[in-house]
């Protein structure tokens, strides 16, 4: 393995300031919500049809 020494900068000072809450739902927020909606639709299409039976029948023996 290469015995390479890495010169690194000092660890930057951690950010302490708090970010102000944005009052209204931003365009970015709408986009994120739409993406999540699409994802949840996709989950609906692959999710086991009888969730309750599936969850009940998933039994494993304990391992390490």
């Amino acid at each position: 393995m290469a015995e390479q020494e890495q010169v690194r900068k000092q660890a930057p000072v951690r950010r302490e300031e708090t970010v102000e809450e944005t009052p209204a739902v931003s365009e970015q927020g709408e986009k994120i919500k739409a993406e999540l909606d699409d994802l949840l639709d996709e989950i609906d299409s692959v999710l086991e049809t009888n969730a309750e039976d599936f969850v009940k029948s998933y039994i494993q023996k304990g391992g390490q």
């Binding site: 969850v55 998933y58 039994i59 494993q60 023996k61 304990g62 391992g63 390490q64």
Partner: peptide, 8 residues
């Protein structure tokens, strides 16, 4: 498995 059985 959500029922108390774990594997590592």
């Amino acid at each position: 498995d959500g029922k108390g059985n774990s594997y590592g």
